[in-house]
Amino acid sequence: MTRIEFHFNTSERLLHTCRLLRKARAQALRIVVVGAPSTLKQLDAELWRFQDVSFLAHCTAQDPPEVQRASPVALGSDPHAWGIDEVLLNLGDEVPEGFERFDRLIEIVSSDDHGRAQARVRWKHYKSLGYELLQHDLSKATDP
């Protein structure tokens, strides 16, 4: 069964996402990130400048197939287009289609009213399906 985690109360959603991707890559995991096209475009830019001394390799649906196959992090609207089933990171408002095929789903929830309201809907959906949900309150985190 998919392990589902909610990371909530983040005021810097994309920065937190970059940190999570860095940690997942340190564990040699492959990750798909889904969300609105504008959000993914912002994340793409943030991944290029996230750290001065390293680069988080990633691809988008616009990259050539050989780049997509070689990339450990994929950004796009279709979570199944990449052949990855390890980690799905959701930056969108909706429950990602086919999330249950992934080993792990991470929901990143911003601290604004809209983000919290949409997360509540997803939380209730996962609960209704019988998933045990883990929660991480980022307002209490001290991760650099």
Results as ranks from 00 to 15, higher is better:
residue 19 R to E: 07
residue 111 S to N: 14
residue 69 R to V: 11
residue 133 L to Q: 04
residue 120 R to Y: 03
residue 16 H to R: 15
residue 29 L to H: 12
residue 87 V to D: 00
residue 138 L to C: 14
residue 32 V to R: 00
residue 47 L to Y: 13
residue 97 E to H: 13
residue 101 R to G: 02
residue 106 I to Y: 00
residue 102 F to M: 10
residue 130 G to E: 03
residue 39 T to F: 08
residue 64 P to C: 13
residue 25 R to N: 14
residue 48 W to L: 11
residue 19 R to F: 05
residue 84 I to V: 14
residue 83 G to P: 02
residue 102 F to Y: 15
residue 64 P to A: 15
residue 52 D to N: 11
residue 121 V to M: 09
residue 131 Y to E: 02
residue 12 E to Q: 14
residue 57 A to I: 05
residue 33 V to T: 07
residue 69 R to I: 09
residue 54 S to I: 09
residue 43 L to V: 04
residue 133 L to F: 04
residue 8 F to K: 11
residue 142 T to H: 15
residue 138 L to A: 12
residue 99 F to Q: 00
residue 77 S to N: 09
residue 50 F to E: 07
residue 59 C to S: 15
residue 142 T to K: 15
residue 144 P to E: 11
residue 44 D to W: 04
residue 59 C to K: 12
residue 66 E to H: 14
residue 102 F to P: 06
residue 135 Q to K: 06
residue 83 G to Y: 02
residue 48 W to H: 09
residue 99 F to L: 00
residue 125 H to R: 11
residue 6 F to A: 04
residue 11 S to R: 14
residue 119 A to C: 12
residue 34 V to N: 02
residue 144 P to R: 13
residue 89 L to E: 08
residue 26 A to Q: 15
residue 56 L to R: 07
residue 21 L to K: 11
residue 141 A to T: 12
residue 131 Y to A: 01
residue 70 A to C: 13
residue 39 T to L: 13
residue 104 R to W: 07
residue 130 G to K: 04
residue 138 L to F: 15
residue 44 D to L: 01
residue 68 Q to I: 13
residue 32 V to L: 00
residue 33 V to C: 10
residue 26 A to W: 06
residue 14 L to M: 05
residue 73 V to C: 07
residue 52 D to L: 15
residue 56 L to F: 07
residue 143 D to W: 15
residue 134 L to C: 10
residue 133 L to C: 04
residue 123 W to M: 05
residue 120 R to A: 06
residue 132 E to C: 05
residue 16 H to Q: 14
residue 139 S to L: 13
residue 137 D to I: 01
residue 22 R to Y: 06
residue 36 A to I: 01
residue 49 R to P: 00
residue 9 N to R: 03
residue 116 R to N: 04
residue 42 Q to E: 15
residue 121 V to R: 12
residue 27 Q to I: 03
residue 79 P to E: 13
residue 115 G to Y: 10
residue 132 E to F: 04
residue 36 A to L: 13
residue 108 I to N: 04
residue 82 W to K: 01
residue 100 E to Q: 14
residue 72 P to Y: 04
residue 65 P to S: 02
